[in-house]
Amino acid sequence: MQIRQPILYASILLLVFVVVLVAMGGGLFNQSTPWPVQWQHQSFNSLCHQIADRSFWISGQPMAVCSRCMGIYSGFALGWVLLPMLSLMKITRVAYIKKIVVFVLLFNLIDAAGNFFGLWQNTLVSRTVLGGMLGSSTALIFIGDFFQHN
């Protein structure tokens, strides 16, 4: 297996894991400060609505991002970790993956809109799954950029 741009791959891997850890919020570390003012919540303050009812909870504290955002970040992290194995599939037409990303993105928008206008009620799990699909399919865009099997 040939690795290209290993420093860039490893740097993104590290950054994505930092994002996921911070997104999990203060509950992961049993922080005693009230969760609305924890630094994790402040860091994502302008990036996510952070509504507690729409977030997963750890140790009695909501995560710093909503369930959909958590799905996106963790899905991207999972996809990034799996890139070496997935590149074995020798998918050369990245255009297909781009189409999948657009499709999943639209699916997420429709789900959010339907819930907002009261057409249906989505759940923590459904939002996480849809977000996860978006994150992981986005990571797959980079298939073949970092790992090549001879």
Binding site: C48, I51, L109, N115, F116
Partner: peptide, 18 residues
């Protein structure tokens, strides 16, 4: 409530700054 209903609008603008 610690969050107001208007913040539900944020559902559509999550991650916009990214």
């Amino acid at each position: 409530s610690l969050f107001s209903p208007v913040q539900l609008l944020g559902v559509f603008v999550c991650l916009v700054g990214a």
